[in-house]
């Protein structure tokens, strides 16, 4: 790829990011997923998990924030192509010289980034309303984990977006996929309490490694080696998701052209 082309793509990603951010901040459904639901989950978790010290409260804040991130990937990133289809803009986007994957990447980046707000809301709520003295134990490791989390979630969102367009039968499972990932990724309890056969399923989910990295860095002082595994796994899975997404994008566009169903439902 030529450097000029890369610069152009970054510009498109930036524009898609800003436009999506502005558009989605007025969408009550998105605002619910980012602010209200994680907050209510955090409240329930505070009651259910009981008083186990401040360390657990930061675990709850991070865990409930992750539920907001996953909801954003599942319902916003997952629908990022379908929504263009609904609004009749998909044909225009596909016909542009910029690959549609680049535009969807920018959109998904906006969805996931704004979903980080769920963590900030839960943090503010727990510290101000409940009065817990909250602190991130390893801030630098936490920030790096957040960056990797966002990127791996965006890549996972690209897979979901294409998969949902290619196969509406998969999209019909969208509602049913929310809580299973909360469970398998260990957002609010360790996966050690799940049956052993579910562990491989957790390992192929970037949200699981994100939860490991964020919980480790927020609740303790791990060394770089301890953080290495979840970070490497997030990078590996992110790259894997990216390859899978590009293959699905090609398949989707080829199929749409052959069947003439780009705007079809």
């Amino acid at each position: 790829m030529k450097p000029g082309m890369l610069k152009a793509y970054i510009h498109v990603i930036k524009l898609a990011f800003i436009f999506t951010l502005k558009q989605s901040m007025t969408d009550a459904f998105i605002l619910f997923g980012i602010f209200v639901q994680p907050l209510l989950i955090a409240i329930m978790a505070l009651f259910i998990l009981g008083d186990q010290g401040d360390e657990l409260v930061i675990f709850i804040v991070v865990g409930s924030g992750l539920t907001g991130l996953w909801d954003s990937v599942l319902f916003q990133s997952g629908n990022s192509i379908t929504r263009e289809r609904w609004t009749g803009t998909l044909e225009v986007l596909v016909a542009m010289p910029t690959p549609i994957a680049v535009i969807v990447f920018g959109k998904n980046l906006a969805f996931v980034t704004q979903a980080l707000g769920s963590m900030i809301v839960a943090y503010t709520f727990a510290s101000i309303i409940f009065g817990y003295p909250l602190s991130i134990e390893s801030p630098m490791l936490f920030i790096l984990s957040i960056v990797l989390t966002v990127l791996s979630f965006v890549c996972l969102g690209l897979v979901l977006a294409t998969l949902f367009v290619l196969n509406p039968d998969v999209q019909r499972w969208q509602n049913g996929l929310e809580f299973p990932v909360f469970i398998l990724a260990g957002f609010l309890f360790p996966i050690a309490i799940l049956p052993m056969w579910t562990t491989p399923l957790s390992y192929i989910l970037a949200p699981y490694w994100a939860a490991v990295a964020l919980h480790l860095s927020s609740s303790g002082k791990p060394n770089i080696l301890e953080m290495g595994l979840p970070w490497v796994m997030m990078v590996l899975l992110g790259v894997l998701y990216l390859f899978l997404a590009f293959w699905l994008f090609r398949k989707m566009l080829f199929k749409a052209r052959v069947d003439a169903t780009l705007s079809g439902q």
Partner: peptide
């Protein structure tokens, strides 16, 4: 919620 309850101390 059941698993969270099992993990918790409520």
């Amino acid at each position: 919620f059941t698993l969270m309850g099992k993990f918790g101390t409520s």
